[in-house]
Design a protein around this nucleic acid. Structure first.
Lengths: 205, 205
DNA sequence: TAAATTAGCGTACAGTTGTAAGCTGAGATA
DNA sequence: TATCTCAGCTTACAACTGTACGCTAATTTA
């Protein structure tokens, strides 16, 4: 194994170790460099060969989580294309993601309201991507004017993330309940924005 | 000053000191007993005369924040009664609350997704109160059937808290923007639930 | 092959943490 | 007045933190 390869592997061990620690009830700011090093199987000081800071590691983890989020969106779109209601399919995909990658979603959720301004900003950016893609989709598919679509997308994402937070610590039965409620609530928004648009079809005029 | 009075005063100093520390970018789990004691002007070990734990203090703070939240609701209702649109008045009141008591709202927000299961539960309970009162109001005023009103209330509260989180670190201009968007989004939900109800007036039949 | 680079380690230090133990002095009670 | 109670104090300790410093050994480069 080349030196570079070995270094990459250790780096991945650090990242995996950090996620492991986040799996328990911890925040990024609440896990220590030494713990991460222990989990990764290296000496505390070796950590610095890979990251300047715990902050630098944290931002890396947020990026990693954002990546997973974007893959989620792609998966949802693929599923929608192959049939099924948009809202139902999207919510189902999202909920499956949360269950399968709970530590990733938890990271985003925690750091979104967390202690570090840098993390908060980074997570906000990821959510913004999410919202942007959704509003593009709404404009394309539903032919709703841009500014209304943006409002609709934002509120839908807010609802989805908020419900996702609840789902994170729910058992299967409660999860299904949350999903069903969320789907109906998203329909409220869709109906509402449609009604809003039809009563006032051209807000610029 | 009687002994009891003095003790109460010190207790309040501890609580105020803790809120002071939360004002900066800190979580409950990230402030130490010694810091709180320092802020309150007592010896670290004297803390135990008032609280068993930092956890016990934390739950006290969440209760305190919940109390403020309920006062907020009462104030909003009073304002609505004395004229003005329900949504506009409610959002304005909420945003004023956030600006005036940012540390209180921040506490609820952070601990809602935070590290401690006990805190999370406590905050969820407070938000549930909030939602319950809103759905009662909707049933009473708008004459919408119970189960739809509950969904409407839940989604509205989700939107309000999520927007509130953004408003927390926004300047005046951005805050106004957030308020305006939020108001329109809440109208989507209201319109949508109404439309949903009218197309399916009796879901039980 | 000889020299340079570097991932990882061990040691060390100053700072912080929670909290146990026991004392003091002032308010409460009899 | 004499006794009791108890809020707050000081001291102490073991555990943990981040990170500075210098070494080693193996890979990479020349």
């Amino acid at each position: 194994m080349s030196r570079q390869e070995q270094k990459q592997k250790t780096r991945q061990n650090i990242i995996a170790g950090a996620f492991q620690l986040l799996n328990e009830n911890r925040t990024l700011s609440a896990i220590s460099l030494r713990e991460v090093a222990r989990e990764a199987g290296i000496a505390p000081t070796s950590f610095y060969r890979h990251f300047k800071d715990m902050d630098e590691l944290g931002l890396t983890l947020v990026d990693e989580a954002g990546l997973a989020l974007r893959q989620l969106m792609r998966q949802a779109r693929r599923r929608i294309a192959s049939g099924g209601g948009v809202i139902d399919t999207s919510v189902d995909t999202f909920m499956e993601f949360i269950s399968a990658n709970s530590n990733v979603f938890r990271l985003l959720l925690r750091e979104h309201t967390g202690t570090s301004a840098a993390y908060r900003l980074a997570v906000s950016r990821e959510i913004q991507h999410f919202t942007d893609e959704l509003s593009d989709y709404i404009i394309e598919q539903l032919r709703i004017p841009h500014d209304i679509a943006v409002l609709q997308a934002e509120s839908m994402v807010r609802l989805v993330f908020s419900a996702g937070a609840d789902a994170l610590e729910a058992d299967t039965i409660l999860k299904n309940d949350i999903s069903d409620r969320l789907k109906r609530q998203l329909r409220f928004i869709q109906l509402g924005s449609l009604a809003y648009w039809q009563t006032m079809p051209d807000p610029q005029a």
